[in-house]
Write a protein that binds this DNA or RNA. Structure first.
Lengths: 337, 337
DNA sequence: CTGAAAGCGCTTACAG
DNA sequence: CTGAAAGCGCTTACAG
């Protein structure tokens, strides 16, 4: 492969001129520029990003940090971010922070970031103080999605309002006995969405004058499988709710499936609502409160790109709250008389 | 942030010695090494990967190339690969080649790879001749998953045997009228799995002396939604199969859902089987032929790592075929009398 | 508008 | 065992 020196030699100019011509800087005569472009093309010249980075101090790479990657929400974000950034000349280096157990994750380290990336997008991972300090020390811009990081821009939905929408939909349908799934049993430092949504559930119930039956607040690891198993224990008793709100569609699907196995008809015997509008929710006819996940990824990318192009520009929004909308399908219906 | 020069100065040695000591090379006295390590630690020194790459010619970064990222299969692979590679000091830069329409994808370019990565893992994307030539020219090792690339190691399942297992399961249950979903209408250059599986379906039917009814071979874009819509048109007629084999679980889920809506009971009125063991398949009780996707990602990573550590070592397998296994759940049953 | 030269922060023969 | 120096391939003031 050819280097900038080859191009300079063949074009009969200095490497400095090649560098300027190729990057579209001014102060290069049109003829020279044309000549350089021709030669570069002909030699299949592509600047070595590693050399460019060393000299310029910029890598044009962004770290995308996720607590899991296999789950739909995160995969959707990563895909959207990668496309948006690549369309603007940046690449994505991926960090899957999932650890062996659900209640902990790997830490972000200097080795992952230092001179390797120009910025960071965190997907729903609340940063520890040490991590924020690290990113500060490295002088990297950071945009958060989902879980806000103090002092940094964040793209998210309003979790409380979203949960309220879900619960109120059930209340509007006449439900009074409402269960919940999505509590996270242990104190997990790396996801805060579960806490927020559960709190919003309690608040909404209270505001409506409805009791929260603690036996109907189910823990789960947020997978459909666990939700099916956990809810089965509740649904097989007579003392059960007429509706369940799940903190995610994947869990809602699990709940509905376990109802089905127990010969409970949805929504006649049990209404189920989730949050997300997961990829399978439409086909499965699940009522949900939809969020546009890909758009959140794109917005976060744009915010980061702006911070990269002009570090001084702090005019952008520091908290971008995206709308969510109730989508009524077949899994919710009037409360039984 | 400190550089190698800082460490050298504080430790009172040359940068060459720091470099050797930190990388664990021999020819450094124990005392000196200890001293250097101490100073490096104390200064929070981490070598600049960009400088290291320029000097050594290695980036310790691997390109992972996928045709889609939002789909479970690919997200699962990426997650497994990222973890395996990172455990061995390598990072993943991600390329989502999805384009606006389903029947084309973005090309792999020199700009994505040159001096940016040490190797490539392709996820079920058949390479064009140009792309293979590019990778050759750049001297990069390549490991393929799913769709083989001529002359390069590949990790995959036996698509034909896997499909045969699915079809024979239905035949064993007494089904004679068997439909198929997962044909890809146009000539899509970037996925070959659909072709292989459809061919295997035809072969298996023929071998069993069963007719392939062309009206029962359905096209689809491999999403659950499209599968639901496409199969609904077939299932609402009287002239319909007693079983449908789907080329993926996601499509099988769509088919089963559309059966449900048409008040066909699964498996009494219609048996449905898929391939994959998708994340929701167990909870939805779907019969399938399981493949271990994450393990394929890990194996591919190991193969690439080996090629990176010793380019001359060609002793490894060039075609690693992973087993698949029939998992019978609730969506298949005896053919109606 | 163009070039010579320093510098980015490492690694790697080459001497000693 | 250790160091001085060249080199990796660019970018960026500084002169002209």
């Amino acid at each position: 492969m050819s280097t900038i020196t080859d191009v300079a030699r063949v074009a009969g100019v200095s490497v400095a001129t090649v560098s300027r011509a190729l990057r579209g800087l001014d102060r290069v005569s049109p003829q020279t520029r044309r000549r350089v472009l021709e030669v570069a093309e002909q030699l299949h010249y592509v600047a070595s990003p590693t050399a460019t980075s060393l000299a310029s101090g910029r890598t044009r790479v962004v770290a995308v940090v996720a607590p899991f990657l296999t789950r739909w929400f995160f995969a959707t974000l990563v895909s959207a971010i990668e496309k948006e950034l690549r369309a603007h000349g940046h690449h994505v280096i991926l960090f899957d922070l999932e650890d062996d157990t659900y209640d902990q994750r790997l830490p972000l380290t200097q080795n992952m970031l230092w001179k390797r990336v120009d910025g960071v997008i965190s997907l729903n991972v609340p940063m520890t103080d040490d991590e924020v300090a690290l990113i500060d020390r490295l002088g990297l811009p950071l945009v958060a999605i989902g879980s806000a990081v103090p002092g940094r821009p964040c793209v998210r939905i309003d979790d409380r309002a979203t949960m309220r929408t879900a619960v109120e939909h059930l209340i509007d349908l006449g439900h009074r006995r409402i269960g919940y799934i999505g509590d996270v049993p242990r104190n997990v430092a790396h996801v805060e969405t579960p806490q927020t949504r559960l709190t919003a559930f309690r608040e909404t119930m209270e505001a409506a004058g409805l009791p929260v039956v603690e036996d109907w607040v189910l823990g789960s690891d947020w997978t459909a499988e666990a939700a099916a198993a956990d809810s089965a224990r509740l649904l097989c008793t007579d003392h059960r709710p007429t509706a369940i709100v799940a903190a995610s569609d994947e869990m809602a699907i699990g709940v509905r499936e376990s109802a089905r196995r127990l010969d409970l008809e949805v929504p006649r015997d049990l209404s189920v609502i989730g949050i997300d509008d997961y990829v399978l929710s439409e086909v499965l006819g699940l009522t949900t409160v939809r969020q546009d996940v890909a758009e959140q990824g794109r917005e976060a990318s744009r915010l980061l790109l702006r911070a990269l192009s002009d570090p001084a520009d702090t005019s952008g929004p520091s908290d971008l709250v995206m709308p969510t909308v109730l989508v009524v399908r077949d899994s919710t219906g009037p409360a039984p008389a």
